[in-house]
Design a protein around this nucleic acid. Sequence first.
DNA 1: ATTATCCGGGG
DNA 2: GTGTACGGATAAT
Length: 813
Amino acid sequence: MAEVSVDFYLLDIDYKTVDGVPVVRLFGVTDDGRRVVALDRSFKPYFYVRGGYNLEQNIRDMIPDEFEVMGIAKVKKKFMGKGINAIKVTVDHPSSVPKAGEAISELAGFDGKFEYDVRFYRKYLVDKEIHPLCLVNVKGVRSNENLDVDMVVEASSVEQISDAMLPEPYFCAFDIETYNYRGNPRAEIDPIMMVSVAFSDGERKVFTWKNFEGAEDYVEFVPGEMELISGFVNYIKNKKPIFISGYNSDEFDMDYLRARASKYGIKLDFSWDSTPMKFQRGGRRKVARSKGTVHLDIYSFVRTVLSQKLRTETLNLNSVAAELLGEKKHEVDWEDIWKMWDDGGDSLRRLVDYCLQDSILTLKLTQKLMPLMFELTKLVGLPIFDISRVGMSQYVESYLMRHIHDRGEIAPNKPKRDETLKRLSYTFEGAFVYQPEAGLYEKVVVVDFRSLYPSIIVSHNISPDTLNCKCCRKGHETPEINRRHHRFCKKVKGLIPEVVEGLIKTRMEVKRQLREKKDQILSARSEALKLLANSFYGYLGFQIARWYCLECAEATTAWGRQYIKETIKQAKKEFTVIYSDTDSVMMSIGDKKHEDVFDFIKKVNKKLPEMMELELEDFYRRGIFVPAKGGERGAKKKYALVDEQGHLVIKGFEFVRRDWSLIARETQKQVLEAILQDRDPEKALKTVQDVIRKLKDQEVPLFKVAIYTQLRKPIDSYESVGPHVAAAKKGKARGYYAEPGTIIKYIVTRGVGSISERSQMLSVARDEKMEYDANYYVNNQVLPATERILKVVGFTDQEIKSKEQTELGKWVS
DNA sequence: ATTATCCGGGG
DNA sequence: GTGTACGGATAAT
C-alpha cells in the first residue's frame, strides 16, 4: 500500500471499537472539499494513580488476568502546582478505565486516581494538541474501509499543522412541520407534513405529500410521509453539506424524524459511515449526533452562549432572528397548523412558505453565529458539536485541561455525588446589588464592567493553588468575609490568573488589531476571548467543577463589591445612580449629554488597572427597576427598559411562559408599556384595576384565562394532583383527549375547594358555560405579574393591596 | 415547611 | 460510559 499524506480540517472526532481495540476516527474535509476519515489505532486509554511505594508492585501483581492493564509506568507530574510521583496505568479500552480504577482503589497503598473521568476523544485531542476545525496532517496508508468518503487513511501519524480554520463551509438548515391536532404532536400518531431545507449557496427545497396549486419550483410532491423522509435523507446525503443545522432540532426535529422514520423502517442516516443519527443525553437535554455530517442545534448554542447578552427574554426562533437578523418569521399561529394542512390550497401554500422561512432564518442565524462558534472551537478546543451544546463551564474546563497538559500537570477530579451535594449547600455572599429606589427614570444609561471579575482574579492572584499559601505571610488579603480574610500568594502566579491573564492580553491585542481594521473574524475572536475570560468566576463557584474553589469565588465577589461601590461613588458625582448589580451600573443622566457619559467612562477607565474596563452597554429613554424577590444573593436582574428606538426590553420577568394565562401576560405588557412608553404610571394602575373589574364582571373571554400545562405522564400515575391533572381527569371522563404529552388547556372555575378541585378543561368549561374564578385570576395571575412593577413606580404594597380589596370587596362579600 | 411538578425550544 | 450536571416558580401535601 502506498503511503499517503493528507491535510484536512477536523470536523468531528469519535472512537469505535474494532476487535476490542479503540480506534479514534477523525472526520475531516480537505481544502478542495474532499471528505477524509483518518483512523488512529495508536492511542490508548490511561489514567494516573498516586500511592505508596508498594502500590506499583500491587498493581503488577493484580494484572493482567482481569483488568486488561497494558502498561504501568512511574511518571513525574505536577498536581495543583506541586510535583508528585504518579503511576500511569494504560488499559486496553476506555470501558476498562472505570473497572481497573475501581480494582486498584482496593489495593494497599492506594492514594487517589486521576483523569479516569475524561472522555476518550477529548483526551486524544488534548494529548495530541489538536484543535477541531484547524488544519491537521495525517500520514499513513489508504484503507479500503467502506465509508461514504473520498479517502480513508489508516494513520501512522496525526498532527495539527496550522491554526488555519475551515474556510466558509457549504451547509444547510432544515425544519419540519408536524400535524398537531391534539396540541402537542405525538410521534406515534401524528405525521410529518413537510420538511424544508435551505442551503448556504441559495438552494431551497421543500418535500410535502399533499398537492396544492401554484407551488414554487422547489416544492417536491411525494406520495406520502415515508417518501418524504427517505427523499429528504437521500437529498441531504447527495448534497453532502458539512453541517446541518436546526432550531431546537436536538429535542424536536431530529427526534421526531427518527421516530417517524422507524415507523416505516427507514434509517435516519446523514452520516459518512451509514450509521443512523444517534441520540444521547447531554446533561438534561437530548442531543442528536451524526457521524461526519455535523448536526448543529442553533437554539442550544444561543441558549448557552448568547442568552445573557440578548435583549429578548424569549429565545424562540422568531425573537432571536428579529434581534440578531432584524427579520421575522411569517405569521402563523401554531395552533392552526393542522387546520392549514387540512384546508389545503392557499392555506397549505402559506404553511409551506412558513416552513421554508424557518429553515432560511435558521440558515441565516447559523451564518451569523458561525464566526463565533468557530473561534470558540479553536480557542476552547472542543469539537464544534460540543461547542454548540455544552455550557460555559465545560469551555473553561476544556481550556484548563489543555493548559495544564502543556505544563505537565494532572487534572483534579470531578466531584462525586456527595461532594457535589455538599458544595451545593454552601452559600456565600454574592455580588453587590444597589437597590433601586421606587420610581421611573428618564434618560437612562447602562454601563458595564464586563471584565470586572477576570481582572480581579488576575490582579489578586485568585486561584485554588495560591489560596492561603505557606510561602508568603502577607499575600493579597481579601476584604472581610464573615469576619475572616482569605489570602492569595504574592510570589507564585496561580493557574487560574495565569490563564485568565493570557486571555485578557490576547484580547487586548486582538482589539488593537481591530482598531486598525474591522474584521468579522477578529471581532468574533475578541468576543470568544471575552466570553471565556468572563466564565472563570462562575466556574470557580460551580459545584461540579474540577477546579472548584469556594474561597476563590467568595474572594472574587468580595473584591467585586469593593470596585463596583467605588465606581458607584464616582458615578454619583455626575449622575443619578439608579441601580447596580454585580458589574453594571444604571444611571439617569438628567440634563447631561451622551458625550458626558463617554467622558465619564474614559475618566473611570484611566484610573483602573489596564485590564479592567468600564463599557457602555446602551442608552435608554427610560426604565424601571424591579429587585428580585427578597433581593438577596443570586438575585437576577429584573428590569424593563425602553431603548431610544422605542423598543421594550424586558429582563427577568417570568411571565412569558405558557403556564401563565394570557390575561396575566397581556396585562403585564400593558403595564410596562404604560409606564415606559407612555410615561404614565397612573394609566398602568388603571389598566390593572380595569382588568380586575372586567375579571369580576366575567367579561374576559375564556381563552384569555386559559392556562396551558403539559401532561407528562398518564393521569393515574400522579402522586400529587395539580390543576392540569385534575382538569385532564374530568375532561377525559367526558371523552376529551388527555394522554401523556397533551397540553391541557384549563381554567380555574368558581366554587369551593382547592384550585385543582375547581380546574376544568377549557372545552369542558365552554360546553358547560362555566364561569372562571375572578378571585384566582386576580390574586394568582394578574397581581403577581404586575404587583412588583407597580410597587417600583411608587404604588406601595398597601396601596395596591387596598385597591384590590376595595375592588374585590364589592363582589366577594 | 416539604415535596411534586412544570417551563424552556419545537408544532 | 473515561456517566450524571438548571433554576425558579406554583400548588399540593
